[in-house]
């Protein structure tokens, strides 16, 4: 039997729920010569700010058991270049969902960037990153306070008249449900969870931190159970759809995230280990569905 992998994410129908997570797939174009991008459900583009940013000094990457740390620090060409150059170029080779990931240092910056993304034809969903752990005074300052996250959400929703707004939450909070509810109450159309966990490594020979930024965001297979738990809690507490993200590395992980309540599933650090991870997961899904007697993926969302 032909398996139905499609899911409905707000107004957008995705051919499958597999989405490379922001920051782990560039602007899509970097992989256009290597992969058939059109097999993906959607792409969440690299986090974009109002002005171009170089990001943090190197080293920006560190190894860890079952995962990795990054402190890239939102390197990006700025929202105007995204809209003028990156999106039109991507749209020539990619015909599935495009998620613009917006970051900022003030409510005003979020509002301005989201308004521009909302007016851009090539963008389907706006994902607001209030959870980047690698920028001082950046997103995470908004993502760890329910009041601040609600303020950003309201401001952004007021200017996004055409497109669904997802708020990407930080796991570095005491109560993820409180954050999620604050977003929902402020009008968010959906939530992405989770971003990376704040961590660090020390080079014990040199007696220095591995990352030039001292701390970085921990991601990879090791965080999967924590991310799954947060998706489960939030999906049961909120009515708006959730994109589950955190340590997903296989078709089985995708199904587990969906059973926990995710409508779509983002694959992050695994792309860095294996640039072919998303197409491989999508190819693997039908046989795993067959094994588990699943005909349509949308039937399993939040069934546990």
């Amino acid at each position: 039997m032909v398996k139905d992998l499609s899911v409905n994410l707000c107004v957008l129908q995705l051919q499958n729920p597999v989405i490379p997570a922001s920051g782990t797939f560039g602007f899509g174009l970097e992989l256009a010569d290597t992969l058939d991008l059109d097999v993906l459900g959607a792409i969440s583009l690299k986090g974009t700010t109002r002005e171009a940013r170089y990001g943090n000094p190197v080293p920006r990457i560190a190894e860890a058991s079952g995962g990795m740390l990054n402190a890239v620090g939102l390197q990006n060409p700025g929202i105007d270049v995204l809209i003028r150059e990156k999106i039109p170029a991507l749209r020539k080779v990619f015909h599935q969902g495009v998620i613009a990931n917006i970051s900022g240092f003030s409510v005003e910056e979020y509002r301005e960037c989201c308004a521009k993304a909302d007016a851009c034809d090539g963008i389907d969903i706006i994902e607001v990153n209030v959870s980047c752990p690698n920028v001082h005074g950046g997103g995470i300052a908004f993502g760890t306070s329910a009041r601040a996250v609600a303020e950003v959400t309201s401001a952004v929703k007021a200017v996004c008249r055409n497109k669904p707004v997802f708020i990407k939450l930080s796991p570095n909070v005491t109560d993820i449900v409180e954050m999620a509810r604050a977003c929902e109450d402020a009008g968010a159309d959906g939530l992405t969870l989770v971003n990376t966990f704040l961590g660090m490594r020390i080079d014990i020979v040199r007696r220095k931190t591995v990352l030039a930024n001292t701390t970085g965001g921990f991601s990879g297979a090791a965080i999967f159970p924590i991310a799954l738990r947060m998706v489960y809690q939030v999906a049961h507490a909120c009515k708006i759809p959730v994109m589950g993200c955190g340590g997903v590395a296989s078709a089985r992980d995708v199904i587990e995230m969906m059973m926990a309540g995710a409508t779509a599933v983002q694959v992050g650090a695994e792309n860095l280990r294996n640039p072919f991870a998303c197409p491989e997961i999508i190819e693997e899904l039908p046989s795993v569905m067959e094994e588990l007697h699943i005909d349509a993926l949308k039937d399993i969302i939040g069934t546990v």
């Binding site: 797939f25 560039g26 170089y54 190197v58 080293p59 990457i61 990795m68 890239v72 640039p275």
Partner: peptide
Amino acid sequence: EERMGCGAGFCYGCSIR
């Protein structure tokens, strides 16, 4: 030489000035 993430230009983990 630099510590790399993806090695293929899409994670921006090894960007230098």
